[in-house]
Design a protein around this nucleic acid. Structure first.
Length: 572
RNA sequence: GGCGGUGUAGCUCAGUUGGUUAGAGCAGCGGAAUCAUAAUCCGCGUGUCCGGGGUUCAAGUCCCUGCACCGCCA
């Protein structure tokens, strides 16, 4: 049985993600996971929250909660939303898990033993009032270049000049506002990524099947960007994974934690450990997904992420794996996405512009969003969300083409033959032609899904839905019935069989509707229809069914106008 | 300022290694049908493929250049 390991970039714990974030990683990953499962693969699909770092601490402080409590609460919020969108993670973990603590410390120890870690002393701003070192961006002051009085220590937002915190005039803490700041020496661990340039380059050069976007970003960073400079992997913070050398203390690094960019990708692996524990499985069960010397050599590993995450996944994380000297599974295929824009601009978390995951589910079922987002997924370039386009796409594709097909077939049958599959005679030329056509279209759909060409797969699926309407229109059982009820029965028997056929093919995109369709046909499961002719005779004459409720209610103009207005501005 | 991306029908987008009259869906127009969520099906596109040069027997597709928009980085 083929084995597929799938990870989605892990969302930061801080706040609720918008639809652009969703379609940039988690949703396409879920589509692929559902598809691979339907193909019979053994799939392990993992995601988690990325919980460490200063933003989480500050958000917790703002909420008046201990950071651990805040993260636990926000994890639950994100988990509920993932469930709401039917994201079928085998486990939704946390980068703050004990497993990730141990594994991150393990990797640091291995990297140190192999000569890839160096201790360096640097000068950073310390806030006595806050009792902590301040990351560059949390030092504010007046820009020496333009005089803007709210410039940050890493860059002035007003004139865009890059700054050091010590450049600022009248610097203050962005956290407390305190001006009682000092520059202090502090010691940190640096990962000597530059020593791994050769090995990383060879590995990336070998990935000739990756999208050009992915390899070009990786090579750029590898050869002339900042990506492979040695980087600090520790911070002077309380919230995070304590710096240890494997299980042992790291003298001189007491009170420090690993920097979030170092521990976050390791959570991909640790998450498998969390999954095993949550399901009462032993260590070997997760290691067979991640250690090529312990069973993972036949695993195909596919990662999903937004384009901004590509350097971390092609360079930093592989550097950690390679530098460990241990046979960890590395990514086989990396699918990256561009951005989704919102109505002519950007989705903006800080401005509350656009639609956020909780809001989306509050106004429409998950399937609406899944279908539209996936069928317009930003694969080749940035994509555009507009309410007009969303309304038109959803109403046409889901309500008119698919939903109405199920409705017209089941209601016609009920009226003429009752609520069970009628007998009728043998197929004729039109039916055989339809089967041939669907066999070809299904093969094309499978090719696109295998290649993770999501828009093309969606277009092919839609064409498959349309084929049912075309057949029905040409066969016209409502006319046939008047002169040849037996022929009409045969036609509607085939049309009814299209319902579970569509359910099987559509389930990766619209799982709830697929379940409803299968349920209406009184089926518990709909196997993948490799053999179309067989699939379209699966429901035998006499098989009882139910006329389902409307699968997809249409979005009205009033609704569209109201939502357009509601989500244009600021999220309260 | 550097790097990268994008710019194709009213809208959202496809266009493989350059090769016949540039395509799809939506919207629009016309028609058929009336089983169905006023749904479906059929037919209909004279588009400076952003502008300007160039290479070629042949360019949306390659090269140069200009413009516009969008990112990333300094």
């Amino acid at each position: 049985m083929p084995r597929t390991l799938i990870t989605s970039a892990i969302p930061y714990i801080n706040g609720i993600k918008h639809l652009g974030n969703l379609i940039g990683s988690q949703l396409p990953a879920d589509l692929y996971a559902r598809y691979r499962r339907a193909q019979g693969d053994e799939v392990l699909f993992l995601c988690a929250t990325d919980e460490h770092g200063t933003p989480a601490e500050l958000a917790a402080a703002k909420a008046g909660e201990p950071v651990a409590d805040y993260c636990a609460r926000m994890w639950a919020v994100q988990k509920d939303l993932a469930d709401g969108f039917r994201l079928s993670f085998d486990h939704f973990g946390r980068s703050s898990s004990p497993q990730n603590h141990a594994l991150t410390q393990h990797f640091a120890g291995r990297l140190d033993a192999n000569g890839y870690i160096e201790e360096r002393t640097e000068r950073q701003v310390y806030s006595r009032a806050d009792g902590r070192f301040l990351p560059d961006r949390y030092v504010e002051g007046t820009c020496p270049n333009c005089g803007y009085d709210r410039a940050r220590g890493d860059q002035c937002e007003n004139c865009t000049k890059q700054l050091d915190p010590t450049d600022l005039i009248d610097p203050r803490s962005a956290i407390s506002g305190s001006t009682d700041l000092q520059v202090r020496d502090t010691k940190h661990l640096h990962l000597l990524q530059s020593k791994l340039r050769g090995e990383l380059g060879d590995w990336i050069d070998a990935q000739d099947q990756w999208p050009v976007l992915t390899t070009s970003i990786a090579k750029k960073w590898l050869h002339d960007g900042d990506g492979l400079q040695d980087r600090g992997i520790t911070r002077d913070l309380d919230w995070g994974i304590p710096v240890r050398r494997g299980p042992d203390p790291w003298p001189g690094m007491e009170g420090k934690v690993f920097y979030v960019w170092f521990d976050a990708p390791i959570e991909y692996i640790a998450c498998a450990g969390e999954w095993a524990e949550a399901n009462g499985l032993g260590e070997a069960n997760w290691r067979r997904w991640w250690r090529t010397d312990e069973g993972a050599d036949d695993v195909r590993y596919v990662q999903f992420m937004g384009k901004d995450n590509v350097p971390f996944h092609t360079l930093s994380f592989p550097a950690t794996l390679i530098g460990s000297g241990e046979p960890w599974k590395r990514v086989d295929y990396l699918k990256s996405f561009n951005y989704l824009n919102y109505d002519g601009g950007q989705f903006s978390t800080s401005q509350g512009r656009g639609v956020f995951m909780d809001q989306a589910l509050s106004i429409l079922p998950a399937d609406y969003w899944r279908w539209w987002l996936l069928s317009h997924c930003p694969e080749s370039g940035d994509a555009e969300f507009t309410w007009d386009g969303f309304q038109a796409g959803v109403n046409k594709d889901l309500a008119d083409v698919l939903g109405n097909f199920v409705s017209r077939v089941t209601k016609f049958c009920r009226a003429k033959f009752g609520e069970s599959v009628p007998e009728g005679g043998e197929w004729g030329d039109a039916e055989r032609a339809l089967v041939d056509r669907l066999q070809g279209a299904t093969a094309a759909y499978v090719r696109h899904m295998d290649a993770i060409e999501i828009r093309k797969a969606a277009a092919e699926l839609r064409a498959i839905w349309v084929a049912g309407n075309e057949y029905l229109q040409a066969a016209a059982p409502w006319t046939t019935f008047k002169t040849d009820p037996q022929a009409a029965a045969m036609q509607i028997r085939l049309a009814l069989n299209l319902v579970p056929f569509y359910a099987a093919l559509s389930a990766p995109f619209v799982p709830d509707a697929a379940r409803a369709m299968a349920g209406a046909m009184r089926l518990d499961a709909t196997p993948w229809p490799d053999d179309v002719a067989g699939a379209l005779t699966a429901l035998p004459p006499g098989h009882a069914f139910d006329v389902p409720d409307v699968l997809f209610a249409k979005i009205t103009d009033d609704q569209r106008a109201e939502w357009q207005d509601r989500f244009a501005g600021t999220r309260s």
